[in-house]
Write a protein that binds this DNA or RNA. Structure first.
Lengths: 215, 215
DNA sequence: TTTTTTATCACCACATTTGGGGATTGCAGG
DNA sequence: CCTGCAATCCCCAAATGTGGTGATAAAAAA
């Protein structure tokens, strides 16, 4: 049983060379090839692909928008981004839009066929630098991935309140005013917070509090 | 120049076979091989590896804990998880702990050498099913990965560098030291940052920078 | 009931940051 | 060539934050 593939890319040369490349694999079938994604829903409805190769930079609508659209209409279709861009925005946008793989174009010749097979068998092929970006991003936002481990530091309610003000960038004086307590009291709370968070400056407090989403 | 690799795995057979496998590659050097991670800091300090292969299931301390520990002490060391587990918890825990790759053991023989090379050249090798998991997870939490509007504030490279240090909680003195510039220069940069971000204190800088993901 | 924790306040000495001025170099664009 | 700007450095005075060592009253836990 053959694997139906369609290509969206505004560059005819690329479409053609991809087509040629894919035709060297018996079980692949290029079911369509389009220069823009304006009618992508119709195109996909008619060509019934298993896998879509999607460029990002295209006239009219971007490939990323098209991914969003297609995934809503055809959730089972696997989409492989193939593009020259590797800025974070476009990479993560594509993934969040529903792409299942992200291949940089300089890897096209050597990796495209393998990547498509990997997609088919439940993988998510990416170029190495993309994979690293993904890892880094996941490490930057740890609390999203392990909602379990939210350190508590057992701050008291009042301390949390003060902490909130600090994170908002308020000075001790203003905090004292806002909470209707004395400057020295604010200081006391801050000292406790320092102890409990194991830090030694306001900037560290803000940084730690935001990273670990205590606020 | 050779690449130093150490292995943590409680199974001697596996350690030995990995060692044999790696020895077939001239530029690889197995700098150590340990059956547990209880002394991993010491082990790594002494063997000075570029890359650590880490099993998860080990007596005493898990490989995931070890990753966290090692990454704190030796941020530059790249860690490749190599394990039989592919439940979401352990996969994402490992990544968030600081691993730079995740290889299932049934891929060891065929992929280990390639994966290590990929790590070295800035990639993050994963077994296909792991990659798919990662994509799925990122798609589940889209709004947090979506790079909404990321205001730029046109900070200069140097200013961004200083900003990074501030967010890390460093004081002007330390920053000056770290960037090998004078205290007064740091101040100049900070003044500029204040202007550009429209803030008036370090805490506001940290807060704003983290909220808007400038860093 | 006694002890601990929480929230409040105070003082001193020291460190760090902030706001206000300037200055020099070197580089890129008009 | 001149202008603008990034990056480097300097000084002073004032504001703000930090570390240490207290204290008191009320509430919660033991």
């Amino acid at each position: 049983m053959s694997l139906r593939i369609v290509i969206f890319d505004d560059n005819k040369n690329i479409r053609d060379s991809i087509t040629l490349l894919l035709q060297t694999v018996p079980e692949f079938e290029v079911a369509g090839s389009f220069s823009n994604v304006l009618d992508c829903i119709e195109d996909v409805r008619e060509s019934k692909p298993d896998i879509v190769l999607m460029d990002i930079e295209m006239p009219g609508m971007t490939g990323i928008e098209a991914v969003r659209t297609l995934k809503k209409e055809f959730p089972q279709v696997l989409i492989l981004m193939q593009t020259v861009f590797e800025d974070d925005d476009r990479v993560f946008d594509s993934i969040c839009a529903g792409a299942s793989g992200y291949l940089l174009k300089n890897f096209l010749n050597t990796k495209l066929v393998d990547s498509i097979k990997e997609l088919q068998y439940g993988g998510s092929p990416m170029s190495p630098s993309i994979a690293r970006k993904v890892f880094n991003r996941m490490q930057q936002i740890p609390q999203l991935f392990k909602p379990e481990e939210v350190p508590d530091y057992n701050l008291t309610p009042r301390e949390k309140e003060v902490l909130g003000c600090i994170v908002d960038g308020l000075s001790y004086k203003i905090i004292a005013d806002k909470l209707s307590i004395s400057y020295e009291t604010v200081r006391s709370h801050v000292k406790k917070i320092y102890e409990k968070l194991h830090v030694a400056s306001l900037t560290e407090v803000v940084s730690k509090a935001m990273k670990e989403r205590i606020v």
